[in-house]
Design a protein around this nucleic acid. Structure first.
Lengths: 334, 334
DNA sequence: TTGTATGCGTTATCAA
DNA sequence: TTGATAACGCATACAA
């Protein structure tokens, strides 16, 4: 009852003493390794006792014993894109269930230097998001690796999202709305995820000779997108709809359209990718391809954890959805 | 040279063997506890050997020995606001230096239930961001606590930002620009940080009877702000400038203004708080009070770590700055 | 079916 | 000024 009494954690040994068994039995039971070794009665008693006493495993001790560090690295190309916050959240939550902490690190494609001098020692695994596996080669040396939203390569487990399907969704919606001149604002960054979008766009319009298209590579910054779009949207035969590789880029299109006096959703339809919070905050709301980013992180961590379990088959691409808002409407009459 | 040779970490014992000293000497030296106990020559030799061998401490072992968990909890009111991503980044980076992992958890003010059944066991500390200390009372029981961006209370270490000063900055700038009718869109959420903004606004206009003011409490959602602002901005004697408690709320003002045909920066000046990424992406760019959120997280973690060192004095409020963009301009002629 | 014994790498106490 | 030694809580090989 004393406030000053130092807190003492409930250990497996404590549970063992109360349950009247040995500590190793407790360990066996709690790790599910009692199958065929420990009697059902004992299993029940131990489980229940642990529960009742509020036993919680000491991860430090566990990691020490197992020679693991309890940390996983999440490598991302940049921190500024809030998409990665979602991936992080998903991975972190799942990791916590397994006593794994998650440390994020931005690893630019050009300069792949890492702060980890001895990754094998410091890391239990690496999750690379939206970047080629070779970029993280030096930090992932000797450590289980999972790539997210990148090209599935033989021998490297990958979790992907159906970005091609997302582009198809966007494109078909625009076609349904009667648009026959559609531009694709492409992220000018070498990444599988953007190649997928480009390919799906090209594929989707290939069988439609009645549709005019424009492909506009752009740096990620909205201001650059705006600059690039000004001449495009001023032209006499301007596109009536634009698909952007990212919601941030879409805001650049908004900006250009507005200063040209074009009304978004009426004169010009715009679709983005990610369904970032900003998509619902601009006016009009931005129609966007929602990517299951939190799921992506979750599945990635799940796969990493399963790696020692011998999981090898990549899961199906995660489904995506088109979220319609005010930025899309019927093609304007010519 | 074999690829299959299992990796073996460099331990303090390894260093000891090479340096020709005992393992305990290595521990003493590397923890800086050799002062007046270990000879300078030995200290040098050990330090250098450890460096050369690439020794890295095993945090699991350290935590086990010290009875610590190596994790601290960052409690935030909501995850949707990207401000907390910055706080998290700052705290996580600093924590990593001390072998501390950071787990985030959204703890709503109403329902303060936590997923931590035995916080003293699972957590080495709690950092509560923008929420009253009593909200985290049950999870922080028996654990060092630091509050961020909240009311400094006796006995509870706090790190704050100069939000009042930020409001003064914003207000004075608008006054300098000639605005004499200014509205304050207030976050309708009980939090110290918003009380500060409100108080500073009230204080700043108290001595200016020539200035008309409006105080408009609002939920956080931009759509709600828009709704509330429509009648305000349609009125014949509408405000010529608006200060918002948050950048997100400012986008709601943008939305309302635009649908009323008001040009931001000319007809209506707008200032936000946070300087979120979105502030530079809207058109025109949003003038905003930049809060040092990453610093806040960093200082919070630093303070938590210093707690066992006996640090008690709260640091000065972190300085803020006004970032001017296109959303502010001279007051329109009446 | 269960218990005993050992060591993971560290810190800290005590003896030398 | 330094070294031997004992835990910390857990997983597991081996003994019973």
């Amino acid at each position: 009852m004393s406030d000053t009494e130092p807190f003492r954690a409930v250990t497996a040994t404590d549970v063992a003493r109360v349950a009247g068994v040995s500590q190793s039995t407790v360990s066996l039971v709690l790790n599910g390794k009692g199958r065929g070794r420990i009697s059902d009665k004992t299993v029940r008693r131990v489980t229940e006792t642990a529960q009742r006493m509020g036993y919680r495993i000491n991860q430090s001790a566990r990691h020490l014993r197992l020679g693991a560090s309890g940390t996983v690295l999440l490598a991302v190309p940049t921190l500024t894109n809030n998409a990665f916050a979602a991936v992080h959240a998903g991975a972190a939550r799942r990791g916590a269930e397994h006593g794994l902490g998650l440390v994020v690190f931005p690893l630019s494609a050009e300069d792949g230097t890492s702060p980890f001098s001895a990754p094998q020692q410091a890391l239990d695994g690496v999750i690379a998001c939206s970047m080629p596996a070779k970029t993280v080669a030096d930090v992932s040396a000797g450590v289980p690796l999972v790539v997210l939203d990148d090209a599935p390569a033989p021998g490297i487990p990958a979790v992907t999202m159906d970005v091609s399907g997302g582009m198809a969704l966007a494109l078909n919606r625009l076609l349904d709305l009667g648009h026959r001149h559609i531009a694709h604002v492409r992220a000018d960054r070498p990444a599988w995820t953007f190649e997928q979008r480009a390919r799906a766009f090209d594929l989707g319009v290939r069988t439609r000779p009645d549709v005019m298209t424009q492909r506009i590579p752009c740096p990620f910054a909205p201001s650059m997108v705006r600059e690039r779009m000004m001449p495009v949207l001023s032209a006499p035969d301007r596109p009536t709809a634009v698909v952007c590789d990212d919601d941030n880029m879409a805001t650049g299109v908004y900006s250009a359209a507005m200063s040209l006096g074009l009304t978004i959703g009426t004169d010009l339809s715009v679709i983005g990718f990610n369904d970032a919070p900003a998509a619902s905050q601009v006016t009009p709301g931005l129609t966007s391809v929602r990517l299951p980013l939190e799921d992506l992180g979750d599945q990635g961590m799940r796969m990493l954890v399963g790696l020692r379990g011998g999981v090898t088959a990549d899961p199906d691409p995660l489904p995506v959805a088109l979220v319609e808002r005010g930025s899309t409407g019927p093609a304007p009459q010519v």
